[in-house]
């Protein structure tokens, strides 16, 4: 559905996107995560036909982005990371204007506008001027705007950025509902945790390249298989290294200022046995607790050494 081949974008000497090979299958939600400046927005704006690639190719729904931009525009709904809205038009008129841009018949546009406004929880704001809506509401309205011409592909650039916690939760609900529509969605964020909740696959971008890709289901399986134990105990590092690291279920040891973190791949029974083992070796244990798995850390561990998918 979405396919890029050695996609590059250079601004003078700066390379924003560097030989990106991306493959998003039909009907999947692909999350792109990366720090600011990693090349997420540039990649999405190339897919949305706003920016032309310096080299390489990108295809959406079989159409090459550089050669058939009009065909690509008809089959995508694009939400930029920062957007504005028009003054003095109502939410319903706003959607109908964009429907008109895509030549959606008027009756169908009116029906869809009503349906999608209700879908994003703005059914009571149909007659409200768009500029009078809160930022969170405007962002949900943008999602409805992306859907108004029923495109098979949605490109959402940081749809929850700049929102307060409550609006973020509402937006997450909308994004989760989007998955039920069976559309191919590319969504970017710099928060991996957030993407994991709405995506099927995650790709991490670093310095314009897709550093790694993993299926969210695989990551979640690993997150239940691995536990991170935070232990505060009266023991020297050498004891940990000699007595604990060689144990069967201990995957990794990390020394922190406030204790030791043990990455443990075992059951709760084996976890209790580890505690007993420490006590049997004369170690005074002040604290022994399981810390929630850091999903970013897990992602990096899982994808360590992997290369781009192509």
């Amino acid at each position: 559905m979405i396919y890029t081949q050695n996609l590059c974008k250079r601004y003078g000497k700066f390379t924003a996107v560097d030989h990106l090979n991306l493959h998003v299958r039909r009907g999947t939600v692909f999350g792109i995560v990366g720090e600011n400046g990693a090349g997420k927005t540039t990649t999405l704006s190339m897919l949305a036909t706003l920016t032309s690639p310096t080299s390489g190719r990108a295809y959406i729904n079989g159409f090459e982005v550089s050669k058939n931009p009009q065909d690509v525009r008809r089959c995508i709904g694009y939400m930029p990371d920062s957007f504005g809205v028009y003054d003095d038009i109502t939410a319903e008129e706003y959607l109908q204007f964009y429907a008109d841009c895509y030549r959606v018949p008027k009756a169908l546009a009116a029906q869809r506008a009503k349906e999608y406004l209700s879908w994003v929880g703005l059914e009571d704001k149909r007659e409200t001027y768009v500029n009078a809506l809160s930022r969170g509401m405007q962002q949900r309205l943008e999602i409805a705007r992306c859907l108004i011409h029923d495109p098979p592909v949605l490109i959402l650039d940081e749809p929850a950025s700049g929102l307060d916690p409550r609006s973020r939760i509402e937006m997450r609900g909308v994004l989760n509902r989007l998955r039920t529509l069976g559309k191919t969605i590319v969504i970017s964020s710099h928060i991996l945790q957030e993407l994991c909740e709405v995506s099927d696959e995650i790709g991490i971008m670093r310095e314009g390249q897709l550093a790694a890709v993993a299926a969210v289901s695989v990551m979640l399986n690993h997150s239940t298989a691995y536990r991170t134990l935070h232990i505060v105990a009266d023991a020297k590092p050498v004891v940990w290294e000699k007595a604990v690291r060689p144990l069967e279920h201990v995957v990794d040891l990390r020394f922190k200022p406030d204790g030791v973190e043990v990455v443990f791949a075992g059951t709760l029974q084996q976890q209790a046995e580890l505690l007993q083992y420490l006590l049997d070796h004369g170690v005074t244990v002040y604290q022994f607790r399981e810390r929630p798995t850091d999903i970013e850390e897990l992602f990096l561990r899982l994808t360590e050494g992997t290369v781009d998918q192509s």
Binding site: R73, R74, I76, Y78, P80, F83, G84, Y86, C101
Partner: peptide
């Protein structure tokens, strides 16, 4: 300046 141009340019207009 109002940041509405990018979206307008992704329509087939």
């Amino acid at each position: 300046e109002r940041r509405t141009l990018a979206v307008l340019l992704t329509t087939p207009l």
